[in-house]
């Protein structure tokens, strides 16, 4: 889409990956000074604090796409801004004491569902196939399960992907018996 993208991270491995993917990686306090548009997708709280918002440019747009409305300190902004008005559907303009503006999109709730229609059907197809199979799994294993967090078996995951590929008309290769054997043995070298 032609934007210059800055990534902020706390995990060194993910940050390194972002750097090598060609993104500009900064601390949020530094990113605050250069960004035009900010989006939080972390799952944690107060990722963008009021102090970060103070450092931002006049007119910065701030949105969240994480599950809960905790990632941006909207309540703090509400308290410390001089005034607030809605300027478009899902766009609130906050005027700070110095007269500069910050725009919060969708009250800091997940913007993809608030202002658009959420994830496209093509991906929800697989997510919800998982949900439907999970319901079937519970019924089939009623009384046998422990109070723990279960995940899908690799076989069932592969089956969902295979069904999706088939629906998209994509064919893939399968391992020959010789190749399968090679992958499970250690004797063969160069």
């Amino acid at each position: 889409m032609g934007a210059h993208v800055v990534v902020t991270e706390v995990d060194p491995v993910k940050a390194l990956e972002a750097v090598m993917d060609g993104f500009w990686v900064l601390r949020i306090a530094d990113a605050a000074r250069v960004g035009d548009i900010f989006v939080t997708v972390t799952g944690d709280k107060t990722v963008i604090s009021f102090e970060h918002m103070q450092k931002m440019k006049d007119g910065a747009l701030i949105a969240n796409s994480g599950h809960f409305n905790v990632e941006i300190a909207v309540a703090e902004l509400e308290k410390r801004a001089k005034s607030k008005r809605q300027v478009r559907p899902y766009v609130d303009e906050y005027t700070l004491k110095d007269g500069s503006k910050r725009f919060i999109l969708g009250e800091g709730r997940l913007i993809n569902l608030v202002a658009a229609e959420g994830h496209p059907a093509e991906v929800m197809d697989m997510s919800f196939a998982n949900q439907a199979l999970a319901a079937e799994f519970f019924v089939k294993n009623k009384g046998k399960l422990k109070t723990q967090v279960y995940t899908i078996s690799p076989e069932m995951d592969a089956e969902i992907a295979q069904l999706k590929l088939a629906a998209m008309g994509v064919k893939i290769d399968t391992l020959t018996p010789e190749q399968k054997k090679y992958l499970t043995s250690w004797q063969e070298g160069t």
Binding site: V6, E9, A18, A31, D36, S65, L105, N112
Partner: peptide, 30 residues
Amino acid sequence: YGTGQSTLDGILRATNVLLAGKTFVVCGYG
């Protein structure tokens, strides 16, 4: 792919801003 596309969709529908040339900050690289 879902969150990537639909988040941009939400921002664009709400604001109609041009992304080209903007500095776009993504907090979190999950």
